[in-house]
Every structure is written in structure tokens, then in C-alpha cells.
Simulated scan of single mutants.
Amino acid sequence: MSSPLSLIQQRHSAPSRQLGEPAPDAATLHTLLEAAIRVPDHGKLVPFRLIKLRGQDKLAFGELLSARAIRRDPQLPESKREKERLRYTFAPLVMVVVARVDADAGIPEIEQKLCAGNVAYNILLGAYALGLGAQWLTGWAAYDAEVAQLLGLAENESVIGFVHLGTPQSDIPDRDRPALNDLLSAWKAPA
């Protein structure tokens, strides 16, 4: 019998370039996202929302980002222009996880953004549990004001990540993980 923690112990990202059809169908996606939004939420602010990029709209988004990348750097080499143009063409579905910070709520901004980050992670974890592949990416577009406008974000919103979803097209090996003993310490009260 597998451990209840085996899902977390085995979860790993699938590179977006190795994700293809099928994407989760509407019912599966709904179930996945309902699970993903069950996150710690100090103050019950729901400081996040989701934007779905799929099909021709996803491709158009990639074209607009490529044009933005060129405006940011007119000297951008052709290979990087092509990389920007193709960035959203691999995985059949991309979920944009957006943080919505309420500055007047009395809850620290970092806690609100971490809440949204937990949504992104839950999408990864849930996708893995469903036998799907997923990768959480950011890159320059997550932090660009023009991209935020393109996505229709309000002033208090920011992109936490672009979560690419699909079916792995090949076996994806896990990466090396850090040793817990290198990361864990115990605090001692001053004498």
C-alpha cells in the first residue's frame, strides 16, 4: 500500500514543451480547479483569480507577447523572438494564476500573494494526481505592466504564474531533490 504522502513525494513538473493533448476536459478541469482553490486564506479574502488560455486565444496571446518582447528589446535575436512566439503553443491549456491584493484588509501583502501561490501549487499537485502534466512558469511576462493590461488585470492584481497543463508526451524523470538534513535546523532558546 502506498503512503498517503506518496503523491507529494512523487510529484514533479512536466516541461511545458513536453505537454500535449489531451488537456483536461471541462468536467475534469472544473474538479481540479475547485480543489486547487482550497487554500489557506488569512481573512477569507480570496486574494486570487484564474484566467484560462486555450485554443486560438492562447495562440493569439503568445503572438501578442512576442510583439511585446520585441518592443521591450528591438535588438532581440530572431531565435528569441521565435521562442517568445511559441512559448504558449505546447501545452494545450494554460491557467494564469492572478493575485488580488487588498491593501486595506489588514492582511500582509505577502500572505495574500502566498495564498495565490498555493492555488498555483495545488493545480500542479492536482494535475499530477489526475495523471496530467503541469509546469508553473513565470518569466518576464509575469512582471510586465503591458502584459498585465493585456490580461485585463486591475492595479491591485499581478500574475503569480502561468501553469501549463496537458498530457506528458514522454516519460519525464524527476530531478535531484535537496537533502532534508541540509535544510532543517532546530531553534534553541537563548541561555
Rank of each mutant, 00 (worst) to 15 (best):
P4K: 01
L5R: 00
Q9Y: 08
Q9L: 12
Q10S: 14
H12T: 02
P15H: 07
R17P: 05
Q18E: 14
G20N: 11
P22G: 12
P24S: 01
P40T: 06
D41L: 10
H42C: 06
G43D: 01
K44Y: 10
L53P: 12
K58C: 06
L59M: 13
F61L: 03
G62L: 01
A67E: 15
I70H: 04
I70D: 05
R71K: 09
R71C: 03
P74V: 01
P74W: 00
E78G: 07
E78P: 07
R81K: 13
R81P: 01
E82M: 14
K83W: 00
E84V: 03
E84C: 11
T89C: 07
A91L: 04
D104M: 15
D104V: 09
A105E: 10
P108W: 13
E109I: 10
I110P: 01
K113P: 03
Y121P: 06
L124D: 03
L124A: 02
A127E: 14
L130W: 10
G131S: 05
L132H: 10
G133Y: 10
G139S: 10
A142V: 09
A142P: 09
A142E: 05
A145N: 11
V147I: 12
A148L: 06
L150I: 04
V159P: 07
V159N: 03
I160P: 09
I160W: 08
H164C: 01
S170L: 14
D174E: 15
R175D: 09
R177S: 09
P178G: 01
A179F: 08
L180V: 03
L180A: 12
L184W: 05
S185V: 05
K188F: 02
